[in-house]
Amino acid sequence: MARCIDWPEGMRCTLRTVVSGETCVTAEDDLVISTVLGSCVSVCLFDPVARVGGANHYFLSSGRGQNASYGAVAMELVINGLMRRGAERSRLRAKVFGGALMKSGLGDIGKENSKFALEYLQTERMPIVAMDLGGFWARRLHFHPTSGRARVVQTKQPQLVNEAAAVAPSGATPVELF
C-alpha cells in the first residue's frame, strides 16, 4: 500500500512498503521503499549513474525455497531487476540493514542473515557504502532507490524477548511475536 511521505529537503514521495519475502526495484524518482526489520535483512542496491535502485527483505539466509524469503533468491531478483532497468553490475553499490537478535533461545537468525549478505556482496564484488546490522532492536528503513539515500530509525528500547522470563498476566491472550 502506498502513501505520501515527506522526504528530507521538502521532497514529496510515494511510500512503497516491502514486507518479508518481497523485493522492489524502480527507476521512479518519487518512490521511497519502506520496511521494518528485526532479524530479517534488507539489502538495498543502487546504480548512481543509471539512477535505478531496489531493495529486498529476506528472513532466511539459506534454504531450498525459490522465493524472495531466502537471501540468494532475494539478491538475484533485485540484481536482475536492476540490470533490466539499465544498471551495470560494476556500478552497483550496497547498503545493508537489519539482522537483530530479536528472540533469545532460537539461535541468532539475524547474525546468519547478516553474514549471508556480507559474504554475498563480497563474493560479487559489490561495495558496501553503508550498513546498520545486529543489536537487539527493530529498525524502520526508508530507502530512496534512485539516489541511494537511506534513513534508518531504531526502536529506543531493546526488543529482545526471553520466553523463560515472560509471564502472561492472568486472563491475557497470548501473542506470538515473530
Rank of each mutant, 00 (worst) to 15 (best):
Y58I: 09
A72H: 14
I79W: 10
T17G: 02
V41H: 09
V52H: 08
T17N: 13
E28I: 08
L121I: 12
K95H: 11
F143V: 02
A164S: 11
A72C: 13
S69C: 08
D6P: 10
K156I: 11
L160W: 10
G99L: 12
A27F: 03
L106W: 07
D47R: 03
T23A: 05
G38W: 07
L141T: 01
S170K: 08
S114N: 10
D132Q: 14
T14H: 04
T123Q: 10
V18N: 09
N162P: 01
G71L: 01
G63V: 02
R12N: 08
I79E: 07
M11D: 04
L82W: 11
K115A: 12
R140T: 12
L160Y: 07
G107R: 03
S170W: 05
E9A: 15
A55K: 01
A72L: 06
A55D: 06
Y58R: 05
N67P: 01
M126K: 05
S90T: 08
G135L: 10
Q154H: 12
S34A: 10
V161S: 09
N80V: 01
L133S: 13
D132V: 09
M75N: 05
I5A: 04
F116N: 04
Y70W: 11
A2E: 06
K115N: 14
G21I: 03
D47G: 10
V161E: 13
E28Q: 13
V25G: 13
S61V: 01
N56C: 15
E124R: 08
A150S: 15
G110P: 03
L15W: 00
R3M: 07
V78F: 13
H144R: 12
L37D: 05
S90L: 01
A100H: 12
F136A: 11
A166P: 00
K111I: 00
S39P: 04
M126R: 03
D30E: 15
R3D: 06
I5T: 12
V18K: 02
T17I: 09
R139N: 14
S34F: 10
T123A: 15
L15H: 09
G105I: 03
A130Y: 01
R149Y: 01
A100L: 08
C40I: 03
G98I: 09
A172G: 10
M131G: 02
W7M: 14
S170G: 06
M83V: 14
M75T: 03
A138W: 04
M83S: 00
N80Y: 04
S42M: 07
G53H: 00
N80D: 14
V153S: 14
D47S: 10
I5C: 11
I5Y: 02
G10Q: 15
V19N: 11
A168Y: 05
G71T: 02
C13G: 00
F46E: 13
P169K: 08
L92W: 00
S39H: 07
N56H: 04
S170F: 08
F116Q: 01
R84M: 11
V129Q: 04
T14I: 10
D6H: 05
N56W: 04
V167T: 06
V36K: 06
V25L: 06
S90F: 03
Q157K: 15
L101I: 11
D132P: 02
E124I: 03
A94Y: 05
E124D: 07
E88R: 14
G86K: 11
L82Y: 12
